[in-house]
């Protein structure tokens, strides 16, 4: 058996001292530690479901050996928010109808976080580029792009008006605040 290596990982703000095999893959280490929000979709870096932030940068955790992450600060989707206190991006994904089966969502949220951290007001082309490593088989991506836009708007409002503004406006839990894709329409028969 190869020699166990001792490393430390900070995951969602909590530091773990770990003994790991040199060939252990970060995806599996994270899931074994209970981070089941990090999804295993392909293990070859093609689908993006296992994306996490490693020192602030989005990476596919299936493509990183755990020992390579020694000393790193890792944030998974679940580290961004909870059911009681969701992150603005998570809330926007829920509100925008961007979630169907939900399996790609944690990776999508991570890619969105990384994008908005460096570019708070992205164009549609920039959004598409940032999400190009995340596969979704359910949505056709339109509502996901809308969710990223909604996230950007809400985060910008937060930074202008402060954290309480969204809550005061009652927007955070207002599910009628969904943005439809531009051009989407619903038409009922005439004279209804």
């Amino acid at each position: 058996m190869p020699k166990v290596m001792n490393i430390t990982l900070t995951i969602n703000g909590r530091t773990h001292a770990l003994g790991v095999q040199p060939n252990a893959v970060l995806l599996h280490t994270l899931r074994d530690l209970g981070c089941t929000d990090v999804k295993n979709g392909c293990e070859i870096g093609e689908c993006g479901a296992c994306a996490v932030l490693l020192n602030g940068k989005p990476i596919n955790s299936c493509m990183v050996l755990t020992v390579q992450a020694d000393g790193a600060d890792i944030v998974t989707n679940a580290g961004l928010g909870t059911m009681d206190k969701p992150h603005v991006i998570q809330e926007a994904f829920a509100d925008a109808g961007a979630i169907q089966c939900g399996f790609c969502t944690p990776g999508m949220v991570i890619s969105t976080k990384a994008l908005l951290d460096r570019n708070p007001d992205p164009t549609e082309a920039e959004i598409r580029e940032a999400l190009s490593g995340n596969l979704c088989r359910c949505t056709g991506y339109g509502q996901i792009i809308a969710a990223v836009r909604l996230s950007a708007e809400r985060l910008q409002n937060l930074s202008v008006y402060g954290a309480s503004s969204l809550r005061e406006e009652g927007r955070e839990h207002d599910s009628s605040n969904r943005v439809l894709e531009s051009g989407d329409q619903t038409e009922v028969g005439g004279a209804s």
Binding site: D37, N77, G97, G102, P106, L180
Partner: peptide
Amino acid sequence: GKPLRRIDALGKAVGATVYAAD
């Protein structure tokens, strides 16, 4: 007829949904 936020959306958004492999 209203585009309400789906009941399963938030759990999936925050990664709380426990899928088969989880």
